Deep mutational scan, measured.
Amino acid sequence: MDVFMKGLSKAKEGVVAAAEKTKQGVAEAAGKTKEGVLYVGSKTKEGVVHGVATVAEKTKEQVTNVGGAVVTGVTAVAQKTVEGAGSIAAATGFVKKDQLGKNEEGAPQEGILEDMPVDPDNEAYEMPSEEGYQDYEPEA
């Protein structure tokens, strides 16, 4: 019985440690998101679009440190934060509304985080759909 109880105690310690790591990862992701939003706020009209992409990228980098179902929630929060940063930029006159959601080359930025393969159960990952990809044929 002692062996059984000791095993359960060790398992509990492992769960607590994993929860603490997840909590730490979420806190880091939130900190990076805040950094990115402050970065966007300090940019001029020309830099705002690039700044919004930076927020998304920093958040995406930190999301990889967070495991399990938390990833889905962090990704949703990050996307809403990026959308909010863009709205703030438009409201303050840093950028025109028609410039939001495009990178410096004018290509749409939507789907940055949505296409990231995420499995809350950590069982399997699927690649994003290939609808947006084109076949590449090298020139002879």
Rank of each mutant, 00 (worst) to 15 (best):
K23W: 14
Q109N: 10
G31Q: 03
Y136M: 12
F94H: 07
K23L: 08
I88P: 03
G67Q: 10
E130Y: 09
A76M: 04
P128N: 11
N65T: 12
A91W: 13
G36I: 15
T44E: 01
L113T: 06
A107F: 12
G67W: 08
T64H: 04
V55C: 11
A90D: 03
F4H: 00
G41W: 02
L113I: 12
K23N: 04
V63F: 11
N65Q: 04
Q109E: 11
V49I: 14
G93C: 06
G106C: 13
Q109P: 15
G84R: 05
G68I: 15
K43P: 00
Y39S: 03
P120F: 07
E61F: 06
E104M: 03
T75M: 13
L100Q: 06
Q99G: 08
E130P: 09
V49T: 14
L113C: 14
G84Y: 06
A78N: 05
E61L: 02
T44Y: 08
A124N: 12
K97T: 14
K10S: 03
A124C: 10
E28H: 00
S9C: 05
K97L: 00
G73I: 10
A78I: 15
E35P: 03
D115L: 09
E105R: 06
T81V: 10
K12E: 00
A124W: 06
T64K: 10
T64I: 06
G93S: 03
E13M: 00
E61V: 15
A89R: 08
T54Q: 12
S42N: 14
G86L: 14
A30N: 00
G86Y: 05
K45L: 13
V55Y: 02
P108M: 08
A140D: 15
L38G: 07
A19F: 15
Q24R: 12
V95G: 04
E126Q: 14
A56L: 03
V26R: 00
V15G: 03
V3T: 01
E57T: 08
A124V: 12
V49A: 15
G47R: 14
N103I: 03
A17E: 10
K80D: 01
E46P: 03
V48E: 01
G84P: 03
E139P: 13
E114Q: 00
T64R: 08
I112E: 09
P138D: 12
S42V: 07
G67E: 02
T92P: 03
S9H: 05
E35K: 07
A29D: 01
V74M: 12
D121L: 08
Q99I: 13
K21T: 05
S129H: 10
I88K: 02
Y133S: 03
G93A: 01
K34F: 14
I88Q: 06
A107K: 09
T54I: 14
A124L: 06
I112W: 10
V70Q: 02
Q24P: 05
E46C: 04
Q79V: 04
A27S: 15
V70P: 02
F94A: 14
K21E: 01
P117N: 10
K96C: 08
V3F: 14
G25R: 05
V15K: 01
K6Y: 08
A27G: 05
K43A: 10
P108L: 12
T33V: 13
